[in-house]
Design a protein around this nucleic acid. Structure first.
Lengths: 190, 190
DNA sequence: GCTAGCATGTAAACGGTTACATGATTAG
DNA sequence: CTAATCATGTAACCGTTTACATGCTAGC
């Protein structure tokens, strides 16, 4: 997740760690300061994997800035991660929203639609949060004010998200069929 | 978070690990199977801390079941965690929703309201996800379809959550003032 | 004189995931 | 016979948090 953010922001432009941290903080719904203990090791890992290069530049402040730049391998890695998201990025809303921030980088609308469809499929599985002897409890049945709130809020979010997903998928498909992009072979909406 | 779930579900009734796992899976928006590698160590940690006891019972299946039961210390620990939630539980929506599932166990509505107020305060800080030279970008300004969607969805959720929080806080306060519960000393809505 | 912002990093501890290991029963 | 369900656990790995460590500049 951190890795995806790093790759995503560096895809737009080279940045130094401090800058990167601020963007990531902003993205994570702000105020989640992305601890240095996570960021710097992550940058080193990515560098070791050959996904980015570090250039030390004399910075504005007293400390020299390390500007990180994606390599070809790094760009490919980002696109791969966007095309084939990990399970969490389909399952967890926060992770999915972060994925969304960079999904526009994928050149092919069919790939974008495929990702949205995966999320939609996951969300369409009926999920209920509490059970009474095997039976799912609906929001209206809950006596507890907070559990009722929890279910109501979760349901509202789910509805809004699904509506957006359906509409956007439709738009992407319309754009694909109306344009030059031919339907990929074997694209039988699995 | 796992710990909170364990304490929360055991507060209602003694359960064995397998049972507990199913309830927790259901709560986490289902399909997140709560790996055994997390659950069993967590149970051992809680037992070592004196928050719960383990009784081995010959179970329905071939393996004997370990039934876990909260101790007084465990009940106190749960209530303490509910009364004074960790930063994540105020900051992260999923964590907060899980907290909500158990907030009804707190006996004092004033404590419940305090928790909701903390979340509301956090949410009222303006959070924007992207910046252009220091200026926050609004959803309408975004050219990227997915980033626009991301901001729109996040904003809708935020609005609904805040509305629920405000209303529930008001209800809790109304109940408190209309009833015997005296306003706690020093309750000057800091 | 102090705090906030700029700027970089390391080390220990903690908790979670993944994979491994076992084994009986029941339904398809 | 095979998969799913019940039922328990361990070990290695990995990434995150928290705390530590340093130091300059600008504004209050």
């Amino acid at each position: 997740m951190l890795t995806l953010c790093i790759l995503g922001f560096l895809y737009e432009e080279p940045l130094h760690a401090y800058d990167l941290r601020q963007r990531i903080s902003g993205l994570s719904g702000h105020i989640r300061p992305v601890s240095d203990g996570a960021l710097y090791p992550a940058l080193n890992r990515l560098q070791a994997a050959g996904h980015l290069t570090k250039h030390t530049e004399p910075g504005a402040g007293p400390t020299p800035r390390n500007v990180f730049r994606l390599t070809d391998s790094g760009r490919a890695e980002l696109l791969r991660r966007l095309r084939e998201p990990a399970e969490v990025e389909v399952t967890d809303r926060n992770s999915f929203l972060i994925l969304l921030a960079f999904l526009g980088f994928l050149p092919d609308p069919a790939d974008q639609a495929r990702v949205l469809r995966r999320r939609l499929e996951f969300m369409e599985q009926p999920a209920s949060y509490f059970y009474d002897r095997g039976r799912p409890l609906r929001a209206a049945d809950m006596t507890d004010r907070f559990r009722r709130g929890m279910l109501t809020l979760a349901a509202a979010t789910s509805r809004a998200d699904k509506a957006w997903l359906r509409q956007t998928i439709a738009e992407l498909e319309a754009a694909a069929s109306g344009q030059d992009t031919p339907p990929a072979p074997g694209d039988t909406t699995r």
